[in-house]
Design a protein around this nucleic acid. Sequence first.
DNA 1: GGGGTAATGGGAACTGTTCGCAACAACGTG
DNA 2: CACGTTGTTGCGAACAGTTCCCATTACCCC
Lengths: 157, 157
Amino acid sequence: MSVESRQSSAPARVDEVLARVREAGGRATTSRRILLERLFAEGSHKTAEELAHEVQRIAPDVHLSTIYRNLEELERLGVVTHAHLGHGPATYHLATETHGHLSCESCGATLEAPLGLFDGLAEAARAAFGFEIDPRHFAVLGHCAACRAREAGAEAD
Amino acid sequence: MSVESRQSSAPARVDEVLARVREAGGRATTSRRILLERLFAEGSHKTAEELAHEVQRIAPDVHLSTIYRNLEELERLGVVTHAHLGHGPATYHLATETHGHLSCESCGATLEAPLGLFDGLAEAARAAFGFEIDPRHFAVLGHCAACRAREAGAEAD
DNA sequence: GGGGTAATGGGAACTGTTCGCAACAACGTG
DNA sequence: CACGTTGTTGCGAACAGTTCCCATTACCCC
């Protein structure tokens, strides 16, 4: 029991995932371990580049493409998912955090919304088109409260 | 009153838009005119590259960057809007066609949905977060009826 | 029909991501 | 615990989509 027991549930789970990786014929490499530690650390919705920087603070030689490949692999194993929040790079987070995304076109702020919030649209789309929406992979865009207030104030001359 | 009176509002409007362009200090160039004709032609949700090809069938020298610049300009004038339908390039259409977008992650099919369809989510997001969704600029992704049927059939072993 | 300047063709640059490949390192085996 | 297999890595090139820069062109106002 070293310093490894951070308050959440971090390092223990890293090893679990690495075990899973090896079951699947993969290997427990250092870059993979560090990446996982960063993913288990608090603060979700990190881009590949942000993750790369975090990893590189510990292992400077880890290349961005390695990050991408590992994220892809972890996604295949169901450990990680990515979401597109509008323009800009995709963001990655643990697959355990299941939620839809609302993202502000003006400021880029992202809200994690319970899937239930989308039920109204889900039913309407299903009824009208047989279309099953998935608000997890691609965010629903719009304008957050703060930006709406600011924009409303600005144009109320 | 020539053949120009298509059932909707096509070529006549091209000149109207060009007039508007000139009011705004712009010029009525050939590439701009041809691009507008293509935009007024039926079949919406064209990518910049598709539009470029269509324009180039008439004026082969028009460069893709010219298409982008003109689309940007027309968007600034409120004539055109673009929508992001998931992965892949943005699609452009006349700003008069106001609708939300549902786009299938599996096959890429896009449904144009009346904005009313999104009311349920709009109200929920507003109530919960003060967030105002806009389903026009970014599509809501998911899975269309056909793909769902296919996928359900495939995994029912 | 000339001049000021918006717009163009062309290509380079840019972002985000994927790919190819030779060198490397994890780890099961002997 | 050296060894070989093979998954992984670092690195750069390639890619898609889009924007930017710049010298040249061509609108269109007078």
